[in-house]
Design a binder for these strands. Sequence first.
DNA 1: TTCGTTAGTCAAGTTTCTTGACTTTCCTTG
DNA 2: CAAGGAAAGTCAAGAAACTTGACTAACGAA
Lengths: 148, 148
Amino acid sequence: MDRAEEKGSDLAVIDHVGIALWRAARRWRSRMAAEMAARGYPWHQSAAGEVLAHLGPDGLSQRALTERMGMSKQAVQQLVDQLEVLDVVRRVPDPTDKRARRIELTELGARDFAERNRVKVRIEAEYRQRLGEDAFKALLAALAELNT
Amino acid sequence: MDRAEEKGSDLAVIDHVGIALWRAARRWRSRMAAEMAARGYPWHQSAAGEVLAHLGPDGLSQRALTERMGMSKQAVQQLVDQLEVLDVVRRVPDPTDKRARRIELTELGARDFAERNRVKVRIEAEYRQRLGEDAFKALLAALAELNT
DNA sequence: TTCGTTAGTCAAGTTTCTTGACTTTCCTTG
DNA sequence: CAAGGAAAGTCAAGAAACTTGACTAACGAA
C-alpha cells in the first residue's frame, strides 16, 4: 500500500542479525512489560523495570547491577531510587562493607519477581511452541555463545 | 571476586530469552557503532544512527521510518534533523504527494551505507564462524519467525 | 466541495542517562 | 601501622532521547 515501502531485495541488503536481534529483544520487553502492567506491576513499562530484570530474590549490590546493566552507576542509582519510592526495592547496608548497600526486594518486590517468573514461563512456552523445541534450544544456545 | 555476585543457580532463574536477546542486540549495536566510528562515521554512536540502519539507497518516507523504528514521528523527525545537519541524509519533496518528504542518502550517506554493509558482512562472518554455519542460519530463521 | 484522515512541523516538557565533584570506607604497601 | 590510591555510593547539573499537544497543508472519499 505504502508507496515508500522497499521491495524485498532492498530489505535483504538492509536487514541483518543486528536489527533482527534488536527487534526481537524489543518485542520481548514490551510484551513482558504489558503483561506485568496488566497484572498490577506497571513499573516494568519504564526504564526502572530493567533493574528488576537483573535482580533476584537474593538481592545485589548497586555496583553489580551497574556492571550487568551496562550503564553508569549514577543512572542505576536513579532507577533504584524510583523503585525504592514505589516500595518494590529497599537498600540495606552491606554487613561486610560499610561503603556498599545491597539492593533487596521488598514483599511487593518478591511478589513482582514471582509474577515475572510466571509470565516469563508463559511467554517462553509460547516461543517454544512457535519455534519448536529444538529450534528454541538452538536459539538459546546461540545467544549464550554470542553473549560470551 | 565480587562478593555480590550470585551463584549460577540464581542466574538461571533470572536469565531468560528476553535478556539474552537484549544483550546480544546491544552487543551487536555497540560493535557496529565502534567499527563505523573508527572508519570516520561517528554518528552511529548516537541515536541518530538507528535511522541509517533502516535506510537503504532508495530512501524512504519519514512515515515509513516511523513505523519501522517503532517511535513517534516527532522523534524520528529530530533524528533525521541531526543527520541532515551532518549532511548524511537529505529531505526531498515526494513527487507524488506534496505533504510527504522522502529521506534520501547524500553522497556521504551512500558511502556510509557501503561501509556499513562491509562491516556488517565482516561481523556476520565472525558470528557465522563462532556459531557454525547451520546454527547461524537457525538463529536467523528463529529471529525471523519471532519477529513475524 | 466538504470533511475526516494523513504527513509533517513546531514547541514544550518528561524521561533517561551522563559527567563531574565529593565523601566515606577499603585495602594495599612501604 | 600510617598514607595514599582505589572502590562504593551520593549529589547536582546538564545533555540526550523521546513524548505529547497543537497546528498546517495536502489528500481523498462521500
